[in-house]
């Protein structure tokens, strides 16, 4: 009954392997995501008092002694589970809920990296903060599928002329 063996093998290959991959992607992806959010929250509370604003000119009561461009960027990729669920969602439309935490992570991580960039050189605040995102590359030759997304945060970091200026 050689053909029976191949029939069973075919079933396992067609249904078992993708399901296993889906399960592994879900478990590993969830673990990584939870860990990342923990790290993000920890650093955010650490930098909570660091002023980051979106005004395109420096607020009047800031008196800066020096300024520079700071940026933080992060490149993220989808996991197989998220992609499959998003693929199913794309049939009927609606919010792609599995992508939401992914982009949330990217935004917050990019902001944190920008803040870290500024703090490392001793800057006191960042204004004119902007976020940009770009699709990185196609993951497949037919032009479909996304290999990843880049999130870029940038702004103008300033050093205050005196500690007094910041306190106001």
């Amino acid at each position: 009954m050689e053909s029976t063996f191949y029939q069973v093998l075919e079933l396992v290959l067609n249904f078992g392997l993708p399901f296993l991959l889906l399960l592994v992607a879900y478990i590993v992806g969830t673990m990584l995501e939870k860990g990342h959010f923990r790290s993000i929250r920890k650093r955010e509370s650490e930098y909570a008092t660091f002023p980051v604003v979106t005004f395109d000119t420096m607020p009047d009561d800031w008196s800066a002694s020096s300024s520079t461009l700071v940026s933080g960027s992060v490149v993220i990729s989808l996991d197989y589970f998220k992609r499959v669920i998003a693929g199913l969602r794309a049939i009927v439309g609606g919010r792609i809920k599995t992508y939401e935490p992914l982009l949330e992570r990217a935004r917050r991580e990019a902001m944190l990296r920008m803040i870290e960039d500024a703090r490392r050189d001793g800057y006191d605040a960042i204004f004119n903060v902007r976020l940009e995102t770009s699709r990185l590359a196609n993951s497949r030759r037919d032009g479909k599928g996304t290999a990843g997304v880049e999130m870029l945060a940038f702004g103008t970091a300033v050093k205050f002329a005196s500690r007094f200026a910041r306190a106001q």
Binding site: E44, A48, F50, K82, R107, A125
Partner: peptide, 21 residues
């Protein structure tokens, strides 16, 4: 400047991924 951390649960739906699936 009022320090404030990003609020959770605004940008991310609280539906469990497995429920969504």
């Amino acid at each position: 400047f009022i320090p404030r951390q990003p609020r959770e649960g605004i940008n991310v739906s609280d539906t469990h991924p497995l429920v969504e699936a």
